[in-house]
């Protein structure tokens, strides 16, 4: 994908979006901001990917959209999780944890007690 720092893996953006929306309904800009804040500005979501991702998730039936008043009393499109989206998030998070632990283990190879002669 080549989007964001380090190039978010395909599907990772979806996971992050779902996670953000599981806290509270949010509009597109806010979602990007939340991801940046939580990652201490490491993950910068490319807007060119975010909106298509939202459309895709909506089409999958995991999120829904509705117009609300924003904090500045301006009309904004808020996205929120559907029940299916919640289930999806849980499953995705489980999968992510498993694979990230696996990757960690591979990356941490040799950092334990040093092998003789290494």
């Amino acid at each position: 994908m080549g989007e964001g720092v380090g190039g978010l893996l395909q599907g990772t953006l979806d996971l992050l979006v779902l996670r953000v929306l599981s806290i509270e309904p949010m509009h597109g800009w806010g979602i990007g901001e939340r991801i940046a804040q939580r990652s201490h500005e490491v993950l910068q979501v490319n807007q060119g990917s975010l909106y298509p991702a939202l459309q895709r998730l909506r089409r999958q039936g995991w999120i829904r959209a509705e117009w609300r008043r924003s904090e500045h009393n301006r009309r904004a499109r808020y996205y929120s999780l559907t029940p299916a989206g919640e289930r999806r998030l849980e499953a995705e998070m489980g999968a992510w944890r498993r694979s990230s632990r696996a990757v960690d283990q591979v990356l941490g190879w040799g950092e334990g007690p040093r092998e003789v002669g290494a």
Partner: peptide, 14 residues
């Protein structure tokens, strides 16, 4: 449910 939201999104889009 999920199907409903998905179909709705798609129909709206269409």
């Amino acid at each position: 449910m999920r199907a409903w939201w998905a179909v709705r999104a798609w129909l709206e889009a269409l």
